[in-house]
Design a binder for these strands. Structure first.
Lengths: 342, 342
DNA sequence: GAAAAAAACGAAAACGGTTTCGTGTTAATA
DNA sequence: TATTAACACGAAACCGTTTTCGTTTTTTTC
């Protein structure tokens, strides 16, 4: 097992100083051609690579970015992450990922773990619990330490930082409009119970979309489900007791679950009842009928988040003016498949 | 923006030496009670945290582990990763993740990126291209540098290291047996074209399972699909031209795709034709009928891999005896849902 | 041929910790 | 009271780099 070779090793072996080796390796004009060649040849032979940790310590940056997401076994987050990883890698950054499991405590523990110099910045999406508690001190703290932060998707107005979000409300209005245009009038929404900023925005859009078309907003047509434990009886009950011809779901699991039950109740999708969900995952692509959805373009979101973060990181050492924050909006699109009619 | 406070800052402020501060913070008996209290109070007040990078440099380990997987937008890998992350975190390790995108080049680039001191060890699953090329020099190289490596799922006999795999072959035999026991005799397999070690093992099990029950192995009943571009016509053609009453698929996407087409061809699942797939993902749970599958228990796999790696890492500084490698086998289980009969 | 400039290299500080090994005080012991 | 042990602390090395600032030697220039 050959140990990693260091500058010191090379220096000793070639009988020059460490600084000479370092400079020779970077083709400094300070060092003579002969020495440079000798050093480089030796370094190549022994496959010398500078130690990253030492570089980090010296340069005060790690070229690591921390990503904290609520869940990894989750299509949307996974696509966002993919976008982040891609962009980050292309810029020479590695990404350290922590999952909060929707828990506030794990979120702060994870942040603290990474705040001690391990990363140059954070990209994160708030856990359910954090959104519920509305306690953002860990985010503020991190920012105070000069570590840039960008929030995506599940964001909050209570902390000022860069953000990248979907136009959840607008696209939801569009969804309702599409339903309306295909002569649907009894439009239901299936959303999360609890405290998801995005679900709320989608519900807002739903209501506004109805109003815009002079449809009475009937709260009886709003079904709230628990994302980690879907109550099929509640769904069945809902559809048995409400006359509905279109359903807007805030995620694909809700949509598929409802669609399956509705079909088992003997209704035809999309002829009698149309469905549109969120998230362009496998489920919607392979369901029967395949589900029309609003595509969130997670990869673009991730890419954008990574770009914003890295821009901030690399601008950091410029000046100490007050930072200025942007929030970028990713355009969602409706992808029509078999669960809707025109 | 208050900068991070260092030992030096505390020392200067309290007019003691850096070493005193360091020791006081660790409750060294070398330091007097008064000084210790004073230092700790100050440190707490200013929320001092030791700089991780400095520690890494000093201690020659980073408490980071590198995970390289072929794809992140992928249920199975995501569950494995979840297991890794969980265990690693509980042991105070962070995990840096890189995705190879099934590309050999990206795999070696990623490894090289992390080999320069950024991680204490690797957990990985081989990319498709790597399995095809059978070039494992980057793995050997990493091991030569004394960095422990554990391979999971997509492994190779060509490099000796710790491994954790599924009993792919055995469980496949079990699947065939289950088909046989429910009076199925015309059993097909839908597998990957190409070079996936796991798919091959499953196909082996399929054949052995047939043989065991004295069923003729008919290669006409082996359908090979491209995982990134599923040819629906090939599937249709296959099922129109072969009489089949049970299908074993090496992943859930193949299973769902086939099931959908078979149903559109007017066959009843599971009465006329049964399906069993691999991967306990959303697709199989929410398909119609829901798909019976062999559960790979990715989380357990990840946990095991992480445990093996961390054990190796922390044993590292013991002795220089020849390392001894284990390969752990995770027990797969068949999960019956609606796509099979008894 | 002497002064100035250029070339080639090394010493040392710095990044932020830990740790070993002094060293000066005070307290205990003979 | 002299000697030793215990106590409380500091200096310095070390981890592996980079970089500034000498210093020495050689080359130019006048």
């Amino acid at each position: 097992m050959k140990r990693k070779i260091t500058l010191k090793d090379i220096a000793k072996e070639l009988d020059v100083s460490i600084s000479t080796v370092s400079k020779a390796l970077k083709n400094s004009r300070e060092i003579g051609k002969e020495t440079t060649d000798k050093v480089q040849a030796f370094a190549k032979l022994y496959n010398y690579r500078p130690n990253n940790i030492a570089l980090s310590l010296k340069n005060k940056h790690t070229k690591n970015i921390g990503v904290i997401i609520p869940d990894i076994v989750h299509y949307f987050f996974t696509t966002v992450f993919s976008g982040i990883e891609n962009y980050a890698n292309s810029k020479g950054y590695n990404v350290i990922i922590c999952v909060s499991n929707e828990s506030f405590d794990k979120e702060v523990i994870n942040m603290e773990m990474l705040t001690n110099g391990s990363v140059d910045g954070f990209i994160m999406s708030l856990s359910a619990e954090t959104q519920q508690k509305k306690d953002f001190n860990h985010l503020i703290e991190v920012q105070n330490q000069g570590i840039p932060l960008v929030l995506f998707d599940r964001v909050t107005d209570d902390v000022s930082c860069d953000k990248v979000i979907l136009d959840d409300k607008k696209i939801s209005i569009d969804v309702i409009q599409k339903f309306y245009d295909s002569r649907k009038r009894k439009i239901a929404i299936v959303t999360n119970q609890g405290f998801f900023s995005v679900s709320d925005k989608r519900a807002e859009g739903y209501r506004e979309g109805l109003l815009k078309n002079n449809i009475f907003v009937d709260t009886a047509l709003e079904l709230k489900l628990n994302y980690k434990n879907i109550d099929e009886n509640a769904i069945r009950h809902f559809f048995q007791n409400n006359e509905v011809d279109a359903v807007f779901c805030v995620n694909e699991i809700f949509a598929i679950s409802c669609m399956k039950i509705v079909q088992s109740l003997g209704m035809k999708v999309p002829e009698q009842i149309s469905f549109i969900g969120f998230t362009d995952g496998l489920l919607s692509r392979f369901s029967n009928p395949s589900l029309s959805i609003v595509a969130q373009h997670g990869d673009k979101m991730g890419e954008m988040a990574a770009k914003m973060l890295i821009d901030k990181i690399e601008a950091e050492f410029e000046d100490d003016e007050v930072a200025t924050f942007r929030t970028e909006i990713i355009q969602a699109t409706i992808l029509e498949r078999e669960s809707t009619i025109n």
